[in-house]
Design a protein around this nucleic acid. Sequence first.
RNA 1: GUGGUUGUAGCUCAGCUGGUUAGAGCGCUUGAUUGUGGUUCAAGAGGUCGCCGGUUCGAAACCGGUCUUCCACCCCA
Length: 458
Amino acid sequence: MSKKPSIPKGTRDFGPTEVARRNYIFNTIKEAFALYGFQPIETPSFENSDTLMGKYGEEGDRLIFKILNSGDYLSKVNDSLYAEKDSSKITSKISEKALRYDLTVPFARYVVQHQNEITFPFKRYQIQPVWRADRPQKGRFREFFQCDADVVGSKSLWQEIEFVQIYDAVFTKLKLDGVTIKVNNRKILSGIAETIGAEDKLIDFTVALDKLDKIGEDGVKNEMFSKGISEEAILKLQPLFSFNGSNAENLDSLKNMLANSEQGLKGVEELAFIAEKIEKLGLSTASLKIDVTLARGLNYYTGAIFEVAAPPQVKMGSIGGGGRYDDLTGIFGLKNMSGVGISFGLDRIYLVLEELDKFPKTVLNHSKALFINFGEAEALYAMQAIKSLRKKGIKAEMYPDSAKMGKQMSYADKRNIPFAVLAGEKEMEAKQFTFKNMKSGEQRQVGYTELEAILFKD
RNA sequence: GUGGUUGUAGCUCAGCUGGUUAGAGCGCUUGAUUGUGGUUCAAGAGGUCGCCGGUUCGAAACCGGUCUUCCACCCCA
């Protein structure tokens, strides 16, 4: 027992069924990305620490996995620094690389580094694992996959519209009906903060507002108050708590509320553009909902903010998110490069599809036929047939050992291989095969041509 | 990082307020059935009770630590 090996907290092994199902999701997303004109790139699993550190806030820095330097890394730490026992100061001395925390910042780094080779607007997608030194929880892992698509180099709001359509297309294809694509705009949030005179508290304000679903109206107000937002300012927010009309109605109320904020009105206008065009284009199974409390996510969003909520019957955090960031590459020295992107949370989508039993039954690929092994001469006879079948693209295999027949048959049974093929002395003499349907138990003798025909058809 | 929770056979789990040889179902192996799996029947293998330490005449059970699981908070996909 104690010798049993294990894997680190928050990581998982994937068996054949899980891999098949994950690939099914990956492929669906990839096809959609490609269909909308995105091309794949990949970046290293680890980056230089200074590329990542400071990009996700203080909390983010804590959650980044740092990679210890090679060699005698402690030699660079002088005695006084060591004596101070300040972990963050020492970290920068003993670790210069870190595992990537998301795909957006490495992408920004990529764009800046390759700006002269890239044709803008640049549309890329990227499906790779990311790592967070978080404490695991439902749908939260320390290693998980993100599937991102981003466009840089265009300010057009049509990109936002494209992304809403991609979300709809992917979840429709996955048969996951009833997802809600929530959309908000950072300019609206800033506008509200401006209107109530709490501009300097924008982050605290948005973080608290984002919790409305969870802690309710009073909870949000209390949290804002405890963060130093005045009671008077909180009173002005009252209209926000009764936003349950249609998108158009909500936009109207926002317009009134933000009448004195230029940037707030700009945000309303942007949202209205997106909502109106989506309404005219139509969505298949998803719905678009304006949600002014949507604020979560990274601080670099400057325009649209997206978040996708799973169908209400499953309890799961967001299964996708994204937004526009006018100055993402600015942190790496490339100005005026607007970007907008979305992300699919593969691992969570998996959990949701599993819970709702939405995976197709045929996702797992297995052999069509198992040839029973009766000994060296018979195995060669079988292998010749298998070789021909494989040339036709028919998946077939032979049991590798000349084991007892019962064992070979039960192997076929357990692996859900639908047909068994038996060829011993008698069949070899007659140039035939005994072909058995594992489900019905029927069996009969056939020649190779017929064998191939049946297997090809089924 | 904070609070709670979980760990017993390959898997899912029983195991009383501390008491002698730790159980069940499923799975596995073998046989009934030397060219036939799924059903049935019979027999069998498999556990230093997560790990380390402590209390006790005696610990799977109680205490401490540690790792792990799951959940909530912070934060996030």
